[in-house]
Design a protein around this nucleic acid. Sequence first.
RNA 1: GGGCGUUUAGCUCAGUUGGUAGAGCGCUUCCCUUACAAGGAAGAUGUCGGGAGUUCGAGCCUCUCAACGCCCACCA
Length: 868
Amino acid sequence: MTNCTNELSTTYNAREIEKDTYKFWEDNNLFKADAKSNKEAYSIVIPPPNVTGVLHMGHALDGTLQDILIRYNRMKQKEVLWMPGCDHAGIATQNVIEKNLAKEGLTRHDLGREKFLAKTWQWADEHKNRILEQFKLLGASFDLSRKRFTLDEGCSNAVKKVFVDLYNKGLIYKGSYIVNWCPRCQSAISDIETNYETEDGHLWEISYALKDEMGAIVIATTRPETMFGDVAIAVNPSDFKYKDLIGKTCVMPLTGRQIPIIADEYVDKSFGTGALKITPAHDPNDFEVGLRHNLPQIKVIDEKGLMMRNEYVPPQIQGLTREEARKKTVKMLEENQVLVRVTKHVHNVGKCQRCNTTIEPLLSKQWFVKMAPLAQPAIEAVKTGKIKFIPERWEKNYLMWMENIRDWCISRQLWWGHQIPAYYHKETGEMIVAAENPDPNNYIQDTDVLDTWFSSGLWPFETMGWPDTNSDDYKKFYPTSTLVTGFDIIFFWVARMITMGLEFTKQPPFSTVYIHGLIRDEHGQKMSKSKGNTIDPVDLIEKYGCDALRFTLTSLCTYGGQDIKISDEKFEFGRNFANKVWNASRFTLMNVTKPKEELKIDFNTLTIADKWILNELNKTAKEVNENIQNYRIGEIASILYEFFWSKYCDWYVELSKIEKNEAVLVYVLDNFLRLLHPIMPHITEAIWQKMPIEKDTKGILNAKYPEYNEKFVFEEDAKKMETVFEAIKALRNIRAEFNIPTSSKIDIIIDNNEELYKQIIPYLNRLAKVNSTKFEKNCNHPKSAYCVVDDTKITIPLEDLIDLNQEIARQKKKIEKLEAELKSIEGRLNNQKFVSSAPKEVVEKTIARKDELKSEIKIIEDTIQKLA
RNA sequence: GGGCGUUUAGCUCAGUUGGUAGAGCGCUUCCCUUACAAGGAAGAUGUCGGGAGUUCGAGCCUCUCAACGCCCACCA
């Protein structure tokens, strides 16, 4: 690193450190993956952010979690690859460009396809670096030399190959079906791009007269304007009300067109009037009914959502919007006295996920992927555990969707995207599906492009060089290890990657899917620009620092993957911790004066305090490794926080002011920094660079990750040290209770465990402000306060300072607490069933606790008597 | 209609195989003790949503009720 003094600056300036540190990693190429390495591989592909996007809190969380896994495995000495890149985001990007054009009063059609695409490419090129640059602010250790884009040449080749192969296998087909059509986007969208919203609507009951006889049949509809496309009236075959009408013909109001009355099981007898008008061109269920009964399909609404100008639509209605047409149609029905009844009706209306326009189910010629055969292996892979979801409950969600999968409409009537590799003969119309145009003079390419998710579904292998399965990256890093993402794109993306990965590489694209929650605002609302409740991670980084942001976000992750509610102030948690790490490290480094050659731990001279902290560190290393391997990533933040703040800073550093072991101080700090590095990469790197230790790597980022080591197990000494802490805390408590000022010291008399307490007299002197320590069995000093720590009584003669009644009351309160516990414990032990059926250790532990309580109570009682 | 999640201290939330509850923030009292006031010390606070059951023992397992949230389905 550049500024190499031996000390840390007195104030912790997060941003300064973070910028320098990231530059150090980048300048030294430390994120670059080596496909030729012999080390075990660990790889993650980034969920490619939209090329048009800016960094939001969801990226911050997702990116942090991926970076933690990457950094952890890098330190585990694996060859890691974090593959970065962007998604071309078909509709989203095209919408942005079209909006910009609209400001100039232009549409894409004014420009034409070629110019429009050139403009979009220019815009994408300008913006595609922005979001990845912002990921750098997060400390992302991805390999930018491998950066990819879903519309780059490699991806394009992969997409063509996949399309052609699927077509040749009969898994891609083109056909006229009902699709979700967005009249604003002017494109088909898939089922999962359609969201349903409940709306207050009406149910109109309309009378259709029978032909050549008296009588009529009344149907119920929520969309009267579609009636011009009716081709039948359907009733349930078992509905006796209509039994006699089946097979008859009726005459449509307003147009006089004649349509048959048919019977179909699909009709619900109890809904509306039990009779249903069938409009195959504008309703998915009617479409199915129409196919079953061989009915014609009459289109009356066009791609812009306007009533068509054709023989079926009355002239007054033609060209109207759906809403206008509805009003007008209802009015005309009223005038013709065929509107029987209107009732209020709440129903769900499909909306375009991108622009919230009401979608129109429309008969349209589109390309589809036949999903059922592809889904089967994808179901198996999860059921057999080849792919594991964390948390597990998402498996059920995934399987349910997969088992009820429907064909995927992949064509979009957009310009920005992978153009479908199908070519039509200019004269004959003959279609050829191939990677390249067979004859550009005579064939023109299909004008539609593919759903964005078609190319992102290939992401884990198209970025690794596929279809070249001999490429170094593919051989080394595919299949990838872990996929990290939010639950909102399991169907859109995860499911598609699994199906495509299995079909084309015969392997699951990753072995673990780690699903985290979504970021929400402090009230639990989804963050959105329109609500104005977004928090910008870049602002948080500027204000609190990247490491603070990462630490806070990590600490808020739960194993169950709950959504995370955040507010600006929550990040003070991480900032405070970073500050603590900085300052304690600064103190440690200031107090280490020996050269690094002399900083080897000598196991023969360790004090119980040294052994205690080494034992704690060792336990921490064990727990951190276990938790990270089990994706309990939030847990490691608390474990490290607790260790560093409550153990190292509160006790060990304080003790070291009295008596220090420089080797242990440095050893513990070094290992702690390594343990913390995946979460807080910059601060740990910056401090580590100044550590007086032997380093065999350029940075902490590829130093060895600490692990549990038998050599550092000192349970017994650690327990003794805990006893000492109890004593110090008890003495401090007495000082506080009796308002003994910091300036006045106390004398103490200890009646037991002389050997232990003798060792720690300097600790007592400093941390509890003790003046003198005497050892005396059966000590009975009048006018004293006292405390009991395990089997040891400590007496503090206070003379005038003490109010005996206060002390007695204090002790009585303690006894009350102890006796309550004793009572419950004795109750348990007197229960024969407990003693016989509880595990032996539990019973033994309970008995031990009983003895402990009894002896403590006895000591206190005895003393009270003598005080009184 | 089907599925999932949540309900624990004033607030935000942890709580891994069942052994009578924890953190951060906030609150009270004291302290600028030469790493840190973004700090230190000492404290107070909970019949773990209601009910029932299994068990020697339930925040944790089973059933049930309630409230809130989400996903899927989309009966015109």
